[in-house]
Each structure stands twice: as structure tokens, then as C-alpha cells.
Design a protein around this nucleic acid. Sequence first.
RNA 1: GGGCCAGUAGCUCAGUCGGUUAGAGCGCAGUCCUGAUAAGACUGAGGUCCCUGGUUCGAGUCCAGGCUGGCCCA
Length: 1051
Amino acid sequence: MFDPVNSKVDFPALEREVLAFWEENGTVEKYLTRNKGAEKRASFIDGPITANNPMGVHHAWGRTYKDLFLRYRAMKGFEQRFQNGFDGQGLWIEVEVEKELGFTSKRDIDAYGIGRFVELCKERVLRFADVISRQSIRLGYWMDWDNSYHTMSDENNYTIWLFLKKCHERGWIYEGRDVMPWCPRCGTGLSQHEIVTEGYQEIEHPGLYVKFPLRDHAGESLLVWTTTPWTLTANTAAAVHPDRRYVKARYRGEAIYVAKALLSALRGEHEVLEELDGRDLVGLRYVGPFDELPVQEGVEHRVVAWDEVSENEGTGIVHIAPGAGAEDFALSKELGDLGVIAPLDDFGDFVEGFDWLTGRNVYDVNEPIYSSLKEKGVFYRLENYRHRYPVCWRCGSELVHRLVEEWFISMSELRGLVSEVAKKIRWLPGFGLQRELDWLRNMDDWMISKKRYWGLALPIYKCECGHFDVIGSEEDLRARAASGWDSFEGHSPHRPWIDAVKVECSKCGEEVSRIADVGNPWLDAGIVSFSTIGYREDREHWMKWFPADWITESFPGQFRNWFYSLLTMSTVLEGREPTRTVHSYALMRDENGEEMHKSKGNAIWFEDAAERMGADAMRWLYSRHNPAANLNFGFGVADDVRRRLMIPLWNVYSFFVTYANIDRFDPSADRPDLSERAELDQWIISELNMLIAEVTDSMDSFEPERGSRAVEEFVEYLSNWYVRRSRRRFWKSGLAGGAGRGADRDKLSAYFTLYECLVTLTRLLAPFIPFVTESMYQNLAGARNGRESVHLDDYPEADRSRIDAGLSAATRLAMRLSSLGRSARSKAGIKVRQPLAAALVILHDSDEIDVLPRIEAQVREELNVKEVALLEDAGSVLSFEIKPNLQVLGPKYGSRVRDIAAQLSQADPGEAHDVISSGRPVCLEDYTLEPGEVIVSSMSMAGYSVASGAGYTVAVTTGVSEELRLEGLARELVHRVQNMRREAGFDIADRIDVYYRGQDDVRRVLSVHADYVEQETLSRVIVDGEPPEGAYVESHKIDGLALTLGVLRAG
RNA sequence: GGGCCAGUAGCUCAGUCGGUUAGAGCGCAGUCCUGAUAAGACUGAGGUCCCUGGUUCGAGUCCAGGCUGGCCCA
């Protein structure tokens, strides 16, 4: 006996029970170790999740893929690694800890103590690693949760040292002086990786017009425009486009130079005095806006030529401050002799040499600068200007550009090497390679330093002599330590402890400190294909698992982040690909396709999703989605997928258990051979094996969305064709119990078939929806299969010998014809309960005509007609249409198809139909067409209702004879009694007595169809008379006939 | 300005190798079916398959150009 199954199931509650079951039985442990030492191996490397907050439903998407692919391969017998990873070093952690402590700047951290601060960062990572682990378990994500790796681990950090050392050996590491985007709040530069995505906002800035008076031309000025007034303090040049036209205009008694195209910058009356080329202005000297500042001493301000000067905004004369603008700095390097003045310190405060500005913050100096300019008489005009401006992706502060010294890995040689390695990988979706190569082509040198506290300690020791060393391991450091090793020993290689160690400069012998910088966090994540599998300590083990067979992550972002760093580090260390396959997926949106934001209120918490829709529904939703497209996630979508798969699946399961228990079906009994089972059974088993093949193929190629759709189609077939068509087989008496002599072989076949479908489905779907499949498997198979869990069972293998493509095609034809027949009935307004005399069909070709007998009974029952036949010899009452079957004719005749179509249109459709339905070819003027090459359909027929589709036609007779009418009434009667049984609360298997009072028609029906009604309603007797006390009674009207029915439980 | 992707019903999306009348779900209107089904079936309304040109007997599908949107990079 199976445990009874309620058709109304609470999936989240079921999932909690299953979680408890796994917990009790140690199922996860058994799963993780089931394939230890297996010959087949599949290597997965987890892209570390940031352990800084709880995970969201978008993480659950990726984690579903990871679990899905791992589970599939586990059931396929592959030995695998199940190591989850946490990413925990870097600014994002620091920012959150700062928030917790109420800090507003780096100074607070220094005051608090770097050691204490770093400890809090570590604690935060461990805290959220724990939260995420528990959430993942709720998702059904089966990993080795006690052995997750951390990017903050010693091993991870030291392996990066090794990588950096290799880079240094090849001369790729250098310290560069450059103007970089800088966050004054965080006190750090931002790398290109960080700024390109979330890094921009629409911000309103001042658009300030200022005059630069010319030195040798009294009364003449350049007009320049800037949106960053503070940079004027560092001005050293003004740039014009050499090939563009400029004008000198008289304006309020002085002469002003602006670009001709931007003359509108001058407000009010003015007169053009002269027109000239930009190149004519080059070399002119002018008075700078802040020449009085000490730092400006000795700077000669002049006009320079620059091709990048735009005529779209401003004045066409660009203020150049090489110490405060990236392009400006590039220009200064190009020209070689421009002054470079860097005004800001780490926190955006003006440095020494700026007189009254020194110590003031960049965010607070606009007003005083305006005043100063006005005093000097060079302030022209101020207006608001909206533009996209970079902000800090973590704290939202507006960035400034600042001249800094940072450490880089040169990409000039690496770019090509990494690109070649990228090409060896299979990228899914296919455009991934192009994206990655595009990024590699465009990216500058990789900035790896960050002036922060919590992160990789860059093992760079720069001596005052100008030489620098890169340390490659802790042993290396110990060996070279000149002092401080003792106080460091026992600590993780982080600030501040690591900085106690000083080494000797390998060039001059001086004692040198480590640079203060920490590393770019993508170094941390990129090294994991080495650090997590023993690259340094156990090379054999590493070789066993490297390269990975697959990874999966969200692609927006990762082309320049994880995929990039993984590739680069693997290229440097081993010159080969870190993974054979990159599977990736797009972004999650809300149900309306809008970005999810906590502040917008449209974000869905993982816990809410798990408890309201269930983890299985969530997982199925993810699995069936095309990963290249954004996923619109929400409760409505979850309802939809639950209806597509889980409810029909559960209903079939519930149906099976209900009847199997009634009949005491025993799956361990002798099962009828497939060949002796009904064709319907053979069909669904064929479909099942086709499904297994399809799902297996889709999983092997990392395309679960393809397999998922096939599953939904199968469940649809199972529920709405196999079970519906088989119901009668389960009801009929002749108990299967015992399965021995006298058992109904057909009924037994039905049970075995449905049982096989269900148990196979649980195994097939176990990686996708692990909870509901476990629940079903435990009840259906469980101990009988000798397995404790569906997840310890093997993945189903398709048995090709049980696939019958012809049968499959035939059944699909039966479905198609039934559907058309129902359509025809519906058009005529005749319900299916009313039997009709005949359905006549037009098929494509003689092959299908041959198949018709095979499916005739199915169609007959579906359409409730007495006969299904080919539409032939119907004579002149019909109107036919004939068309060429282009799919067949095209390849055969090519360009002559047009001719054929023309000749066919001249042929008589009725004749053509008669010829074809007898299986003979149609002769045209120049061509002879086989039956399959012509498509015939019927448009209308007297006495018939007709429906056509996809080249098929079904016509049902519309006349209802007295005999048919009575039969229809009988079915109607059955229908009413069935409903009453349910209303009265009888059990499905209860026997009843039926009482009725009604007109003669009713009696006539029962005189002919009493047996049928009794059998259908499980009635012992049908009595013409008043129902007795205690009977459930209802009054009915059927087609205008009044009658009273009573039902009473028998016995 | 360059690269990648997408554009199919009111919405969300399928659409295989180029081939008959381009499909599904949701939503709307209605009918039916139900002795597993919080379901299901059917009907109806709703499509210049972004546009233009090309290849082809035949283009939603292939090619070229353009438009719009998204992402990435300048």
C-alpha cells in the first residue's frame, strides 16, 4: 500500500518535511560521497558569492544551475567536487562594517585601529557565509557546506602572491602615475572594472564660464567652460582644436575668443571682429585663474592644440588641469612640457600650496572660488548643467579625478595570450566569446592596488632606491624577512599584521616595508581554480581537477570581472583555459521587467519566495528559462510554472495512488511484458524514453531549458491523454490485487505503465525539483528500489528499443484529429456527451491513412462518435480545396513548383480528392503528383460541421437520431448521478442504489441503457420510485425533462 | 563612434533544416468537460513576424542596409 496522497498539496510544507527527512538520514552526506573514486569525473569550480548580505532570489537562480548540473552528473555516476565559495575581501565588506560602526571616513578606521577593524570584517564575512549557507540549504542546494572555501583564506592570498610574482618575473608589474577616478569618502581609487556599470548617475553640476585674459594682448580674453570649478586651481593650459574655426568678438568693451560654432556662449550684444583657425591661437600666453597660489608659481599658461576638443558644448576652448583630469593628464604626457598640479589628498582636501584653499574639501569650495574669480574680474557666467557623472558604486559619493600612484599589471603582452586562451573555451550563450574578446581588446592595464585596509596584502616591497621586489609565498617572505617575522607569525597575511615584516631590498640592501595598498578583489576570485584544489601543495590533486569542466555565473559584469580574472590568472600560471565550458545567464527583473530594488519595493526576499512559492517552483522557473534573456521573476510567474508542471504531475501521482490502493496494486508483482500491453501503454513508454533521451542530451550540453520544455510537454501528454484515456481501465472491476490468476491483465498493464512513468519521472526530475520528487519517490519506490533517496538513485537511461516513432506520430495524429473534431462539435454547439453518428477525416498521405485504423478507436471515444472514417465518395455535396504540399514538392521540383501550383489550381478538387483518397496519383498536364504531394481539405458539407487545421480536416455529422438522443440522455444521467455521489460525500469506490421519478423519456432511456448507467455509477440497482429516507435527493432538468434523483449508499 | 544582443498577439515568450493556415501561457468574452486535477478542453476577439532591399520556386527564419531598445566599451 502507498501512503494516501491529498490532491491538494502544500508544496512549501512538503519541502520542510523533506528537508527534515534528509537531515535525519544524512542523505546529503551520502550523496556527496556516492561517486568517490569513480572513473568518470566532472570538475566544477564555484564562483564565490559575496558573503556580505543574505542571498537574494537572483542568487538562487545561479545556485539552481549549479545544483542542477551537479546533481545530474552525480546521478550519472561522475565523481565531483561540491565546494561552495565565499568572497569576503574588499571594499564592499569594509563599507558595511563602517556603516555598522557609524564611520564616515578612513580616518575613523585609523583611529579605531586597523587590526580591530579587519577582525570585524572577517566576522561579518563568517556571519553572512552562515546565513547564505542556511538559505542555500533551504533551496535544496546540496554542497559540502562544512568545507566552503573563503577568498580571505591564507591559501587563497598566498596563491595570488605566486601569481603576482610570476607576473613580475615577466616584467608586467609596474607602478604608474595616472589620473584616476577617486572616491574621497572611501579614500580610494576605482578601477575601470568598478566604474563602467553602476558607476554613473545623472547629476546637476555648475556650468561655469570663465575668462582667461591674454598676456600680450591687452583687453583680449579666452572664454573657457568647466563643470568642475575646483580644477581651475590646477589649470596650466587651455586647449583649442587646431582645425576648427574660432572668432574674436567684441563684447562689452573687450575682445573675447570662442569657437565659431559656440558663439552662442556669449549672452547679449556682440560683434564678430575676426575669424581665425584654432591653430592661429596656439602658443598664446594667458593669465591663469589662480596664478596667485604658491603651487602656480612659475607655471606658464599657454594655448595648446588638441584634437579632442569638442564643439558640442562649452566654448570650444578647454581648460586643462593635468593633475585633475584623466584626458588632461594624457595630453600633458603627450606634449611633455605642461605643468602638472595635483590639488587633492586622499580625502579630497586641498594639499599644501593652495593658500586659503589648503585643508578645505573639494565638495565645499565652489562658492569661494566663484567669489575669488569675481574679485579678479574673470567670472563670466554660471548656469546649471545636467550630465552623466561617475559616482562611487559603493557609497554613492561623486568621484573626483586625482593624480595618484597605483600598481598595474600591464596588458600589452597578456591581452593576446588571454584572448587565445579564451577561444579554447565553449561559451554559452555563444556570444560570450565575442563579449570577452571585446573586453580584452578594450581594457587598459589592470589596476590591482587599492588604498584600503581589508583585502589581499599586495606583496610588493618598494625601496627608496627605486627598486621593488614581489614576494611569492609565505616561505619566501620568511626567508627574506629582515625583521618583524616573529610578531607576524600566527596571523593571517592581512593588514596590519603582515606589515610588521620588513625585507631587504634585493638591490641596495636597505630594509623595506610593504606598500600600504591592498589588492583588487577580482584577484581574490580569479585565483580559485588554483588555490582551492591544491595548486601549491598537492599538484597531483590539482591536476585531477584542473581545468574545470564547467562554471556558471551571471554574464553581465562577469566578462570584465570573474571570467576575466579567472582567464588572466590561468593564462599567466599555466597558459591554458581554467574551464572548458562557461555557462552564463542574464539578469533578473521583477514580474513587469523592471529592475528589482529594495527602495522600489519590488524586491522579493529569498525567504518569502521559498515559503510562498516553494523552492521547487522557484527552481523549475529558473531551469526552464532561456538563460540568454533576462528573467522576469515574481509570484505570478511562479503560479504559472507550478500549473505547468507541478500540479499536473502531482495530480497524476495522486490519481495513481488513489486507485493503486483501491486495487492493492503491488509493483513487485510480475509485470506484463510491454508487447502484451495496450497500445496506449506502449505509446507513453515510447514517449517516456524519448523524453529521457532529450533531457539527457540537453543536460549534457548545459541547456536545461530545452529539456524542461520537453518535460512539460510529456507531463501534458501523460495527464491529458494517457491518464484521461486510461481512466476507464483503472475503474473497471476485476481487481488487480494479487496480480495472479484472474487478475485483469489490461488493468495491471495500466498500473505498471503509469507506475513506471511516475517513478522514472521522479528520477529524471530529481535534479530539477528535488523536494517533490523525493516525496513521490519515497512513497512510490523508496525501499522497493533499494535506495534511500531518489538522489542516491541513478539517472534514467533511455531505452531506444522502447521508442516507437511511428506510434508516437500516430498518437499525435489522434490528438490532432480529436482536437479538430471537438472544434467542429463546438461550432455546431453539440456537447461531447451527445453521441454522434460519424466523424469523417481528411489526412495528408497514404502513410497516415494506413495509420488510421490504429488510432480509430481512440478518436472515436474522444469525439463520442460511432464511427471514424476517411472522407471519400462524398460526392457533390462537398466543397474541397486542394493545395500543393510545398514541403515535399519544393526539394523535389525546385523552381518548377510555381508551374505545378498553377496546374494544380486548374484541377478539379473533388476529382483530386477521390483519386487521392483511393491512394492513386494525381495527373496534371505535365506532372504526376503522389498522394502525399497534394493537400486536400474540405470547406463545408451539408449535414456536417467541419474544422480544418494544419492540412487536416475533420467533419462530424450533426444529425441526432432518436437512438443517439437516448444514449446522450443516458450519459447526461450518469453525469448527474456522479455529481450527486460527490455532493453526497460518497467514497469513489462506494456502491450505491439509485432512485428516480420522471417522465417517460427517462424510463425509455433506462430501459435501454440501465446496464451502462449502473456500471458507470457503481449502482447496484436503479429503481423507478421515491427515494427512501436517508437518500441524497436532487431535482434535475435535462433538455427540458424534469426528474428527481436519489442516491443511497448500498450495503 | 565601435562591439554584442534583442525586436513575433494587449503582456510574457516559443518558433528546429527556409516549406501547408506563425504557436503557447497570462488577460478578456463565451461554451464545454470533470469518478485525479487549486485544473483541463474548445471557440472568439487580438499579428504589416520593426522597416527597406536582396538571395530563393518559396523568407518570421538566410544576407545587406537602416530604425528602435538593452547591455558593454570609447
